[in-house]
Structures are given as structure tokens and as C-alpha cells.
Simulated assay, not measured.
Amino acid sequence: MDTKLTLKLNQEIIEKAKIYASQKKVSLSRIIENYLNSLTNDSKNDNSIEISPFVKSMSSGKKMPTDLDYKKEYSKHLMNKYK
């Protein structure tokens, strides 16, 4: 059963949302309904996500340094590879 809901929102946000909805070919009401549903859906608990054995097997257990310059490291790798 659909019920009417009145919201007070910033006019600019409403206009942007209408444009977005138009581009996606969906009603603004449907977007808001889906958003509220995703917020209140109990079955999508973050703790319910199960990691597959394949993904677990890919983990090396090593931690990467936060200041790692991956572009520099990759460049070194390529230089050594094509010597």
C-alpha cells in the first residue's frame, strides 16, 4: 500500500534529484523509497557478509606500508623485468 509523504528539502537539492531521476528514468519517489528501504533493511547487516574461501586464500597476511609509492615500485619491477 502506497502512502503519501511530505518532505521539506532544500530547493537546489530537489532540482538536482529531479534531474538525476530523469536521467535514470525512475521516479524521485522510487529513489527515496529504495534509499529508505536500504537504511531500514535488517537483513543487510554488515556482519552477515561472508567471505568466500577463494577470497580468503588470496590473502597473504602481509600489510602494506601506508607511505608505499606503488608507482615507483612498479617502475622498478618493470626495469628489472626487461633488463
Rank of each mutant, 00 (worst) to 15 (best):
I51H: 03
M58N: 02
N37Q: 08
I51C: 02
P53E: 12
N47G: 13
Y82H: 10
D42H: 05
I19T: 13
D67L: 02
Q11A: 14
I49V: 10
V26D: 05
L5G: 10
K72A: 14
I31E: 06
L5I: 14
I13R: 14
L9C: 13
S57H: 01
E73T: 02
K18Y: 10
T3K: 13
K4T: 15
G61I: 06
L9T: 08
E15Y: 10
E73G: 01
L39C: 08
N10V: 03
F54E: 05
L78P: 00
T6K: 06
M64Y: 05
K63Y: 07
K8R: 08
K62C: 06
L68V: 14
G61Y: 08
L68S: 02
Y35Q: 06
K25C: 11
I13S: 13
M79W: 12
L68I: 08
S22C: 05
K83W: 00
Y70V: 10
D2M: 08
D2I: 07
E33C: 02
R30A: 13
S52F: 01
S52I: 01
N34I: 15
K8D: 08
L5P: 03
I49Y: 11
S57P: 04
S29R: 13
S27A: 12
I14P: 02
Q23D: 14
S38M: 13
S52M: 01
M64I: 09
L36I: 09
